[in-house]
Amino acid sequence: MDNPSKIVENGITYSLGDFDGTTMHYDFYRILEYLEVKGKLLYGEEFKIFKIDRPLIRKLCAYTINDSKAAKRYGISLQKGVLLNGPVGCGKTSLMKLLRYIIPGKPTYEMIPSRNVVFSFNHLGFKTVEEYGDSGSYCFDDLGLEPYGRFYGKDANVMGEVLLSRYELYRTTRGRLKTHITTNLNATELEERYGNRVRSRMRELFNLITFDQNSQDKRFYLK
């Protein structure tokens, strides 16, 4: 049986915890070490994880590894997706990309820039809403920064339509197919952008996890 506690990167084995043959016992500080190593491989040697972000990363790791006890302690539902909110440059996108690597072999979500969904809609119309709304697990990146869509002269709030479809998917699959989001917008701004109907469903769809407003701008470290 493969040992899920071990991950090999460039010939070096990293341990994320201990595996007793049936159950994986994760260690947060070992996960943190691996995330920094993987971050350097993906984003360059300047990448680093800041101490101020550790409480948030701890919550996200508990969610990712499906730790029900920790999730309950943090008030997180393992059935819902994650809405990761924070200021520009705080590292939302890079963190959501990294978290996909800590469980080897587990099916994971695909990172999709929200603007790409709109660009697809402009060419293909509502087929795009069906594609992203009715199947798969996705993290829609930079929600709220995408333009409005336009197809055959008709304007559409494309991501709003996708989120409504994802809500129905959440209900029918009981959270098996996850929806995640990164955004700079707060709750009021999201409601202004997508309307009260979408906002109310987002409360059911997502665990809101927010970066500290004093979190450092990390764009220098993600070149």
Rank of each mutant, 00 (worst) to 15 (best):
2 D>E: 11
3 N>Q: 08
3 N>G: 08
6 K>Q: 11
6 K>E: 15
7 I>D: 01
10 N>E: 07
10 N>A: 03
10 N>G: 01
21 G>L: 09
22 T>Q: 14
22 T>Y: 00
25 H>G: 03
27 D>S: 15
28 F>D: 02
28 F>P: 02
29 Y>H: 13
29 Y>W: 14
30 R>W: 02
32 L>V: 00
33 E>R: 11
33 E>L: 08
35 L>N: 00
36 E>Y: 03
37 V>T: 14
37 V>D: 07
39 G>D: 09
40 K>N: 00
40 K>C: 10
46 E>C: 06
47 F>N: 07
48 K>Y: 13
48 K>C: 09
59 K>Q: 14
60 L>T: 10
62 A>K: 15
63 Y>N: 04
63 Y>R: 07
63 Y>T: 11
65 I>M: 09
72 K>M: 11
72 K>P: 02
72 K>H: 14
75 G>L: 02
77 S>K: 08
80 K>W: 08
81 G>T: 07
82 V>L: 10
85 N>H: 12
87 P>N: 11
90 C>F: 06
91 G>V: 05
91 G>A: 10
92 K>S: 04
92 K>A: 05
94 S>V: 09
95 L>E: 06
95 L>P: 02
96 M>T: 04
102 I>Q: 03
105 G>S: 11
115 R>P: 01
116 N>S: 14
124 L>F: 14
130 E>N: 04
134 D>C: 08
135 S>Q: 15
136 G>K: 05
136 G>V: 00
139 C>I: 06
142 D>I: 06
144 G>L: 04
147 P>S: 07
148 Y>E: 15
150 R>C: 08
150 R>T: 15
151 F>N: 15
151 F>W: 12
159 M>E: 06
160 G>I: 05
161 E>L: 14
162 V>D: 08
162 V>F: 05
162 V>M: 13
163 L>N: 09
169 L>R: 13
169 L>I: 03
172 T>R: 14
173 T>R: 08
176 R>H: 14
179 T>Q: 03
183 T>K: 11
184 N>G: 10
188 T>I: 14
190 L>K: 15
190 L>D: 10
194 Y>I: 05
195 G>F: 12
202 M>V: 13
207 N>S: 12
210 T>S: 13
213 Q>K: 07
213 Q>A: 05
214 N>Y: 10
214 N>G: 12
